[in-house]
Amino acid sequence: MFEAKLTDGTIFKKIIEAIKDLVTDVNIDATPTGLSLQAMDSSHVALVNLHLGMEGFERYRCDRNLTLGISITNLAKVMKLVNQNDSITLKCEDEPTYLTIVCQNQKHDRTTQFNVNLITLDSEHLGIPETEYTSEITMNSGEFSKLCKELYALSETVEFEISTTFVKFAVEGEIGSGSIKIQTSADEAETSRPEDTVKLSFALRYLNLFNKAYSLSNQVKLSMAAETPLVVEYEVESLGTLKYYLAPKITD
C-alpha cells in the first residue's frame, strides 16, 4: 500500500496549482524514497519535474513502486477542498483504481475525503542528463514573478543575460525596447558561477506560468547554459524541488 501524510496540506495544494496550467494528465511515481512527477506541456517546449522526498512527510509508506496516472485538472478541483492549516493524506492500495485524498483540520473535528479516479497514460519520459550550467543565479521569487509579469505587457520574449556582476532581462516589442539590470552585489541576486556569460531568449508566457510556484519558496534559482533549456527551480521547504525547464527561442 501507499500512504503519505503532509502536516501542511496547503503545500501540496500550491504545487498542484503551480503546475495545472502547464500539464494536464500526468503519471506520479510513488517509490519507497518519495514521490516524483515529470511531464511536458502539450507543445513540448516546457517540462515540469517535481521530487518530494519521503523525509519531508509526517508519515510515508510505499511498499512497492507505483505509477499513479492522474488528471491534474481534476486533482486541482479536489484541492479546493483543502483549507488553510489542513493536513493532507494521499493513499491507495497496491493495484489502485483511485487515489484517496484525506484532509483534516488542526482540531481533528473536520475530515474531508475524496477518491480521485486514476487513469492509464502512455507518457514519454525524458532523461535529463547531468548538465554543467555556466550561469546560475538565485533571486527573490516574488521579484522575479513581478518582473516577468511586467515585461510580458511589453513583449512576448525576454532575453536573459547573466554575467559576473549583473543579471539582465531585456525585451523588444512593438512599442520599443528596454531592460531590467540587477547588480549582483545587491541583496536580491547573486551569481555562483562568475566565469561565463550566456544570452538566451525565452517566452514570457511560460515564465509567467512557472511563477505560479513563487509562493512555495522565497527564492528562485535560474540555471542556464548555451543551447540548453533554462531551469527555473523552486525549493519546496524540507520536502524537495519543483523544477521547470524551458526551451530557448531563436530571435530573428
Binding site: E124, P129, A247, I250
Partner: peptide
C-alpha cells in the same frame, strides 16, 4: 521568433 527546438532534442526519451 520561434523555438530553437522542443524538449526531445535536448533530452533523450527513456
Amino acid at each position: 521568433s520561434k523555438y530553437q527546438a522542443t524538449m526531445e532534442r535536448y533530452y533523450k526519451t527513456i
